[in-house]
Structure formats: C-alpha cells, structure tokens
C-alpha cells in the first residue's frame, strides 16, 4: 500500500486540508486542487442521486454506500470516504484495495475527530492548520 496524498473536504465541498506523504510528487496548483476537490464532491453527490431507488438501503442518505468510491487510472487510484456529517476524506494511493483504504480512512477519521475537532482554535469548515494533526496523520501512513 502506497498512499500519496490526503485531501479533506468540508461538507460543502471546499478543500480544507491537503497533505502529501511521498517526496517528489508532481504538484497541482492550489487552484487546480480546489477544482479537483469540488469536482469529486459534485460527482459524489450526483452519483448518489442516480443510484436506482430499489438499490437504496435504509441507511442515512449521506453515507458512502450510494456515492462515488473509487476513480482508477493506469498508475494510481483515488479513494473517497464520506463521514456521517458529510466530511470527505480523499486518498490518492496505489497498490491497495478498497478494504485496506477503508481501514486507513477510519484511522484518519479518528485523528481528525481527536486533533482537529477537539482543538478550540479550529473553526468549523475552515482550513485546517494544525501541526499536531500533520504529525499524527503522517504516522498512520
């Protein structure tokens, strides 16, 4: 499993966190990564909307069972994980599978709820600038 990058999107699709875990990655400009984030957010919303009615489960509508989960390219995959409150974690990775990534996303979610949500200086839906969180997320990779 090789994880390149983590994005965190707030519930309205804005990019609030961006961290690269591998050295020497080709970089998107800030604008491009914002576009990337909001595009994935929109596709997730649309794909969950066109899910056939009979395929829907009784779960809450904003869980990740009816939306986008993987985008594949030749050399890497983009995985999407949505929490119950609509926060999205997006992982760019290679040599892995959905189950493995779900485990990692849950770890990141745990760190997020500890180090971001319990920080009194963090404002909801605002960009995350947090050294503790940076450090702890890096440890999960």
């Amino acid at each position: 499993m090789q994880i390149y990058t983590l994005y965190i999107l707030n519930k309205s699709g804005g990019l609030v966190y961006h961290n690269d875990f591998q050295p020497g990655l080709l970089q998107l400009t800030t604008n491009e990564s914002l576009v990337m984030a909001s595009t994935i957010h929109s596709i997730h919303a649309i794909s969950s909307k066109i899910t056939p009615a009979n395929a829907k489960t009784n779960d809450l509508y904003n869980n990740n069972k009816s939306g986008l989960r993987i985008i594949e390219t030749e050399n890497f995959q983009i995985y999407v994980y949505q929490t119950i409150t609509g926060v999205k974690f997006i992982g760019f990775a290679n040599d892995t599978n959905l189950a493995e990534m779900e485990v990692w996303f849950k770890k990141v979610y745990l760190c997020y709820s500890d180090y971001v949500m319990k920080n009194p200086f963090q404002q909801l839906d605002m960009p995350i600038k947090n050294d503790n969180f940076d450090r702890i997320v890096r440890q999960t990779v």
């Binding site: 500890d114 180090y115 319990k118 200086f121 947090n130 050294d131 503790n132 969180f133």
Partner: peptide, 14 residues
Amino acid sequence: KYISVPKEFQHLNC
C-alpha cells in the same frame, strides 16, 4: 494534548 496553537497566538500555552 489535542490543542494546537495557531501562529497568531505565538506564546500561548493552554
């Protein structure tokens, strides 16, 4: 443990 002080609060320690 979970508090990360932003740059504008330079010397604050909770």
